[in-house]
Amino acid sequence: MSIPHDTFECGHTLEELSQYLDTGEFPDPRHLETCPDCRNGLDSLRRLSTAGSELFSNDLAEAGSGNDDWMKNILANLKLELRPGRSIPLRSENAADTLTETEGSVLALVRSVTDLAPGAVAGRVRLEGDVTVPGEAITVNLDLAVAFGNPLLGSAAALRHDLGEALARHTELNIAAIDITITDVIDTPREEP
């Protein structure tokens, strides 16, 4: 898979993670157990691979090559999101404590919920607004690639509901809106009559 070759904070790259999934080889295998960013990346790549297999069973080689624009966009955004990012505060019962979750963990959550939706793959995911300030209104901006033939409005409504539930369960963010943009409609191979 052709993947952007930027380095994460831990010193590894999305390309190395992809190679690990393809070959089982990684420069520092033990690192994969202790790096949350790499583990989030592996999860995303696995889901992306699965989605590619399901959507493009007749054209997997081309999809997996990373030459498609939609695939390139997803990988480029994934590269950006596999970082801790901002610290999102959580309420504490003790004033001396500092409880937070990383923006990267929340973006990975949004991506994992999105990728569960049939025929959809998360593209760019962004939290708009100052997530470091408790109670600040936050908008989730999500770009989607969907397979041709899926009912877009119904899928978006269901996904918005699922994302709202997940974010309420795992964060204390004040989610003002979840904006979903279909940026790619993937024309999957059709069966011959």
Partner: peptide, 15 residues
């Protein structure tokens, strides 16, 4: 002992 605790969530496992 009195401690200040900093807890950071770095990963939320996918379903």
């Amino acid at each position: 002992a009195q401690v200040s605790v900093k807890v950071t969530v770095a990963r939320i496992s996918p379903e």
